[in-house]
C-alpha cells in the first residue's frame, strides 16, 4: 500500500538556500520523519534534521509541515493525498542553522533566568505530603516535551524579533506556572513575570495552545492564572497570598 509523494524540503543555511523536491514512496503507517530519513538514506545523505525518540516524547523533530508547526514523528503520511506535494520547512522563529535544524538556544537562555523552586519546610515527621488533587494541575505542565512549537507560533516573537529580549514565551510561562502552582513552593515570581518575562505582551490569541502536541492548555491553565496573579498582586497582596497558599 505504498503511495508516491513529492516532498518539498528546505535545503540551505544562513547564507541562503531553496526548496528542493524529492520524490519518495511512503509505506503504510509511515510518518513524515520516516520519509525524511528515507530521503537521507537514498538521495541526500547530508540532509540535516533533529530527532531522537520517534514517538512524540522528546520534542526534537519540530518543523513546519505545509506551514503548520508540528512534530514530524507524529505526523502520519496518510494525512495527505497520494501524489500531493508536501512542504517541510524549519521552524521560523529561530535562526536557521542548516536545512531543518534551527538554533533554539533562545529557549535555553530563558530557562536559565527563571527563579528556581523554593520549597517550604518538611512536615514534622520529616516527610513531604502532597495530594493527587493538588499535583494534577502541575503535572499537566510537566508534560511539556520542550518542542518549542508554541514559541515558534507565538506572534509576539515570530513577527517581532526585537521583542525577544523582553518576552520569555509560552513555554516559559508553562514552566513558571508549574513553579508558581507547585503545592510546596514559596518563591515570589510576580515581579519577574511582569518585568522580565514580559507576560503583558501576551494578548491571549491561543495560537500556542493550538499547536501544543502534549495538549497542554497553555493559555487557559497557565497564562491566564499567571496574569491574574500579577494583577492581584498589584491590587491586593492578601488575595495573592491566599492564592499561593491554596495553590490556586
Amino acid at each position: 500500500m505504498a503511495s508516491e509523494f513529492t516532498m518539498r524540503v528546505w535545503r540551505g543555511d544562513i547564507s541562503g538556500g531553496e526548496f528542493k523536491d524529492y520524490r519518495v514512496e511512503a509505506q503504510e503507517g509511515m510518518v513524515v520523519l520516516d520519509v525524511i530519513h528515507t530521503i537521507q538514506a537514498t538521495q541526500a545523505p547530508d540532509l540535516a534534521v533533529r530527532w531522537n525518540c520517534k514517538a512524540g516524547k522528546c520534542g526534537s523533530c519540530s518543523a513546519e509541515i505545509n506551514g503548520k508547526p508540528r512534530l514530524m514523528c507524529m505526523t502520519r503520511m496518510n494525512l495527505f493525498e497520494p501524489g500531493e506535494t508536501i512542504t517541510i520547512s524549519p521552524i521560523q522563529t529561530f535562526p536557521l542553522l542548516r536545512d531543518l535544524v534551527t538554533d533554539v538556544s533562545f529557549n535555553y537562555e530563558k530557562a536559565k533566568s527563571i527563579p528556581a523552586l523554593k520549597l517550604k519546610a518538611k512536615e514534622a515527621d520529616g516527610t513531604r505530603r502532597m495530594y493527587q488533587d493538588d499535583v494534577d494541575r502541575v503535572q499537566e505542565f510537566h508534560k511539556c516535551i520542550e518542542c518549542f512549537l508554541c514559541q515558534d507560533v507565538c506572534h509576539v516573537i515570530r513577527d517581532h524579533e526585537d521583542n525577544k529580549p523582553e518576552f520569555a514565551g509560552p513555554r516559559s510561562f508553562v514552566r513558571l506556572a508549574s513553579l508558581e502552582m507547585h503545592p510546596l513552593d514559596e518563591e515570589d515570581r510576580r515581579e519577574f513575570l511582569k518585568s522580565d518575562a514580559g507576560l503583558g505582551y501576551c494578548n491571549i490569541t491561543k495560537c500556542c495552545t493550538e499547536v501544543c502536541p502534549e495538549g497542554i492548555h497553555i493559555t487557559d491553565n497557565a497564562i491566564i492564572p499567571l496574569k491574574e496573579r500579577v494583577v492581584d498582586a498589584y491590587y491586593d497582596p492578601v488575595v495573592w497570598l491566599m492564592n499561593k497558599l491554596t495553590g490556586k
Binding site: 543555511d13 537521507q40 545523505p45 547530508d46 540532509l47 540535516a48 534534521v49 542553522l97 542548516r98 536545512d99 535544524v101
Partner: peptide, 12 residues
C-alpha cells in the same frame, strides 16, 4: 565516503 561539508552533516 561522505558528501557535502562538515556543518550539521548527518551522513558524516
Amino acid at each position: 565516503t561522505v558528501e557535502g561539508h562538515r556543518q550539521y552533516n548527518p551522513g558524516w
